[in-house]
Write a protein that binds this DNA or RNA. Structure first.
Lengths: 191, 191, 191, 191
DNA sequence: GATGAATGAGCGTTCATTCAT
DNA sequence: GATGAATGAACGCTCATTCAT
């Protein structure tokens, strides 16, 4: 088993347990047991628990972002781009319930706040796909003149809530409903 | 000091500390200290920590619901009723940052899931109002034909996210922006 | 059992174990077991392990100092005062092997250095009995003109080493030998 | 690099780290890193940590003893021999602060006791010289009639304490003060 | 021979809960 | 009823040692 394998085992075990039981319900000992490694081994790959939690986020976020960037309709109208993203988010997280749960846990923890803050006050050159959309929408005046953070709230919040409801069994999102959701979000931000 | 007073002191102390420091950052000893009671006294009023956390939620939720019911425009058009609720939520939680923080913590903890499940199944409290709104909207065909849970997601999610952004300093919600937010939500659900 | 009793139990258990097994050979769990209290109880009386170690020192040092101050020949010649102290140290630590061992451990740990530093650079009004002796000896020119720290080294070091040899069985200090030791130390510092 | 080189690298790295950070502050991993060898390699040369600690002592002690034996004034008066040894100790350890620190750590650890016991029982190394000195002093009646261990305590203890004070900055030992120290020690043992 | 990844027992400390007063 | 001292299981983390390569 290669070094990368073991690291991945830990990442997966931790992600699963954090998703299923919350950050506080998953002690390091349980993670190591599930990963099939010794308790101390985790610390060869991650300096401490906090770093592990952050690294899971980073890993998942990269994977998620790559998914959204696939077949992204560069150069096409803002509306079309938005639909790509909205439906992309739904598709991805419908298929990945654990990642979705992890994501929810993460963004409602102290870790999540900091990440969000960095994202919204982004001074690094990182190209956030949604941020770019917002700027283009403003430029072409196809979306309402609102602060960027609020753009996120209106356009994205319902999507995440709907996915959560799907996983909790309150609704069943198929292609048609996915279309309805994203379309409704678009209605709330378009001029 | 009456029995009720002491119970309230505990509820308030616990709510504040949970809101400020998270569930994990507020040990029972600190709660009892802040409430001005002995550590053991908490257990006379609440069977254990989990029950305390649940009771705080119930208490806050009742208070919040009552706020929304005040001057509720019964019999008026769905749109007007929705604006009453939407702006009511914003007003309330802008003024009550601690309660908002508590609410967020709560709904993203294991406790939260169960409550939500009951909420959508039973029809009590807040949902009486919103449920009624949904049904009336369906009947008069002024809102899109979507499942009730999705109605929630579209209409309410952005409001909570926006309030969170307000408290975290990413946006500043004044009356005008409040109007914009609720209006945008309405755009996403109206026919 | 009073509060003070339990605190004393912990202090004694810890002192004994530290003396017998060294700081590193005495885990908190063993201390609590020997003290007959729960593991967490120690932390009601001492913030942490380091504080416990310091408090033992303080307690022992006060007791020891009080012993030396008994029947101290105030106003009598420096030589007589020195003999009182020298023989007092020997008497005390011959009778208290555990306290002696603790003292040795302590003074050769990082804790000990700090204490010694404070003592030698003393700006607090604390009346150290040996320090006073040094100053009087200098004033009356009955001891060699040497730095204070060296006075300690010459006058006190052999006494502690001799007591250690006594406890380790290399010598047997009786009254006569005690007299010899202190007298020899005096020979090394007197003019 | 020969076998001996690697062994020496480990000894030096370990000695330095133990001296600087104490036995408990220097994990094997850090030692191996500093020595430029793999973690497991240490165990090819030393059965375990305790053995490593003991071997460092032995090595340093041999080196130290050889230093004292250099230009030893065999056949000259006891006083002269004593001055050679006393000043030799001071010179050596003033120049070798790390070795001195290591020595102090060692002798106040559980390891130290056993070694000292053997030292006073057997007659090897340093003690050859000092033992000889003691016996000659007794024979010619130039030093007080005291047990050998006590001879050590009176003659050597102040020297070690003074060197410690030098390294800790409480005194500054130059040639004159070195003379004073050894001379004072002599005063305490001579007839 | 040499390596360093892996181990897991053991550490200091916390805190929800109990119960004698 | 009210208290808060006492508990001990549980936690995150370290590190001496092993052993497959």
């Amino acid at each position: 088993m290669s070094k990368t394998d073991k690291r991945n085992d830990i990442l997966n075990a931790a992600m699963t347990l954090f998703a299923e039981q919350g950050f506080h319900g998953a002690p390091m000992a349980q993670i190591s047991e599930r990963a099939g490694v010794g308790a101390g081994t985790i610390y060869r790959y991650f300096k401490n628990r906090d770093v592990l939690i952050m690294e899971i986020h980073t890993t998942l976020f990269d994977k998620f972002t790559n998914h959204l960037k696939e077949r992204y309709p560069h150069g096409r109208p803002v509306r079309e781009c938005f639909f790509h993203i909205g439906k992309g988010i739904i598709d991805y997280f419908i298929k990945q319930p654990l990642e979705f749960r992890y994501n929810e846990q993460f963004h409602h923890s102290p870790y999540g706040l900091e990440v969000r803050r960095n994202k919204l006050t982004n001074t690094t050159g990182e190209h956030d796909i949604v941020l770019e959309l917002y700027e283009k929408g403003m430029e072409y005046q196809v979306i309402k003149p609102i602060p960027m953070a609020l753009f996120f709230d209106l356009a994205i919040a319902p999507i995440f809530w709907a996915v959560r409801d799907h996983h909790q069994g309150f609704i069943k999102i198929d292609n048609a409903l996915s279309e309805t959701i994203v379309s409704s979000c678009w209605d709330s931000i378009r001029i």
